[in-house]
Design a binder for these strands. Sequence first.
DNA 1: CGATAACTGCAAGTAAGTTGCAGTTAAGCC
DNA 2: GGCTTAACTGCAACTTACTTGCAGTTATCG
Lengths: 149, 149
Amino acid sequence: MKIKCCDSSLDENKAKDLLSNSGLNRTKMKVTILLELSSAKTPLSVADIYQELGDESCDKSTVFRTINQFKEKGLVREINLGEDFNRYEIINPDHEHSHHHHHVRCRECGDIKLIEKCDLSPFEKMISKLGYKKMEHYLEFTGICSKCA
Amino acid sequence: MKIKCCDSSLDENKAKDLLSNSGLNRTKMKVTILLELSSAKTPLSVADIYQELGDESCDKSTVFRTINQFKEKGLVREINLGEDFNRYEIINPDHEHSHHHHHVRCRECGDIKLIEKCDLSPFEKMISKLGYKKMEHYLEFTGICSKCA
DNA sequence: CGATAACTGCAAGTAAGTTGCAGTTAAGCC
DNA sequence: GGCTTAACTGCAACTTACTTGCAGTTATCG
């Protein structure tokens, strides 16, 4: 099992705590997936996750089910970067992926970078005036990166 | 910020002209699909399109192929509103869907409204500084509308 | 330790979107 | 109008992301 715990702010114990606090069982599989998401430099697809596990692989249905649980419990957020599958990234107060942000994806090489800043409050204020509540927004960028230009 | 409802600005002859100008054959099927997209109040999914045709139905593969041609020729734009399928709306200089805009979708009833205004130039400037060219952005809102609140 | 609920692997199933092929239709030229 | 060719269409089979039912396993908690 290859889990890169380099600069990750999540270790096995913290992962287990997160699971317990979310009412999920602290199984080996759930911990593994959570750590993999935590140490990833970019949002991962479900295929990324179960291919990464290699020998100790688990079934893709398990990954899908686990990810959906994480999503329901607010441990991960789902994003779509214009590919034909979704990606997931961890939400953890101690983690750099946790705060609200967006992404740029290179349409050539597929490389994904984080965009830290986001102020769409003027938009949301105006939409609120139309009677909408509980606004959420979804914003992603694509472009051609400097390597591919 | 303005939300408009749509009135179709496309009739059969204009549709045929659009097809010819795009280098596509003026077939009954292509005209029909173009008119249906033109008169739609919200972006349509491919399933919407071929179910709407009813008796005069055509194969879903035809709709997919046609929509892809329209997309390549710049006649329609593809959008994803957080559902598990794409939607398409017409781009026509005479048509109010033609200019760049976004949408709010009610997470309860699924109703979709247009958002006219969009100024993300500060974001795009910032990203340009990272070396990205040919920026595109994708922005959609969801919320709970006044009827469903 | 034992009961129960949550979890997992497997295989089979959905549904969006694609593709190969053979028959049909539109475009262009005479 | 008729002819040729390329574009188009319907059908069926396929691909792929994601889901589901079931039976066996594992975690939790008393």
